[in-house]
Simulated assay, not measured.
Amino acid sequence: MKSGLLLPVCLLLSACALFHRDSRPAHAPPEEAARVQFPLDLPEDARTLEGGTVTAMQLALDDFRPLDLKPHKGATEEEQCLYQRESYDVTAAPGPEGVTFVQITLKPQLCEKQGPLMDMGATYAVDVKGRRILAIQH
């Protein structure tokens, strides 16, 4: 590489580091965390999800509603609701050949201020071992 190109390339690579998105969630400050009271045991109705199922759900949710997705400026209350992951239910089921199907559906009547909303979800076919989405059905 010519020495005249070295400096601009180094500057460009350094600038790219500024745009790196942290993939870990935010943590509360220590004083807030200290106020959390953990139960000795989880409640009887607690559910255990198999690791592959959780991975499939996470991959589908990261595609459907990325954590950094924000409502557009001037979004209505209904539109803001649609941007929230908490507004959706997630169901998963094993499929053939290592595929897990993940269905994401809007919780009934949660964001429906102006009437029923249609087609606000998707079904994903996820290859858990390959950590990739195979197909999406809207």
Rank of each mutant, 00 (worst) to 15 (best):
T123H: 07
R132L: 05
G121W: 08
K73G: 06
Q137P: 07
I136W: 01
L18I: 12
E44G: 05
D63I: 07
L18K: 12
Q37T: 14
T48C: 03
Y83V: 11
Y83D: 05
F38G: 00
K73E: 14
Y88G: 02
A34G: 10
P8H: 03
Y124N: 00
F38R: 05
F19W: 15
A60I: 01
H72G: 09
P25E: 02
C111N: 02
M1C: 11
T100W: 08
I133N: 02
L134G: 05
L6T: 13
E79V: 13
A93G: 12
Q84E: 13
C10S: 08
G74R: 09
P94A: 03
V99P: 01
D119L: 03
P71D: 02
P30R: 06
A46Y: 14
L6H: 12
C16D: 08
T48M: 04
R21K: 11
G95F: 12
C10R: 04
M120R: 13
T91P: 09
G121S: 10
V9Q: 02
P8R: 00
L117F: 13
D127G: 01
V9K: 01
R132W: 15
M120Q: 15
M120S: 08
M120W: 15
M118C: 05
P8V: 01
I104A: 00
D45Y: 14
V9G: 00
A122W: 04
G121T: 07
S3F: 13
K73L: 07
T100A: 02
T100R: 02
P108F: 10
V36I: 12
S3L: 08
P29N: 03
R47C: 09
Y124I: 01
V36G: 02
E31C: 06
A122R: 01
H138S: 07
F101S: 04
L18P: 13
Q80G: 10
R21E: 11
A46G: 09
A34I: 12
T76Y: 11
Q58T: 12
D45P: 05
L6N: 06
A28H: 13
V9L: 04
K70S: 08
L110C: 09
D127M: 02
G121V: 09
L134C: 02
A28I: 09
A15V: 10
Q58Y: 11
Q109Y: 15
C16H: 14
F19R: 09
D45A: 01
F38C: 07
P116W: 08
G98T: 05
L59C: 04
P30K: 04
C10P: 10
Y83Q: 03
M57N: 00
F19M: 07
E77I: 11
R35Y: 12
L61V: 08
K73H: 14
Q80Y: 10
D89A: 06
E79P: 15
D68R: 06
P116E: 04
M1W: 14
A56R: 00
V126H: 01
K107E: 11
S23T: 15
T48D: 02
T55H: 01
Y124F: 09
T76D: 06
L6G: 04
P116G: 00
G130E: 04
H138P: 10
E44C: 03
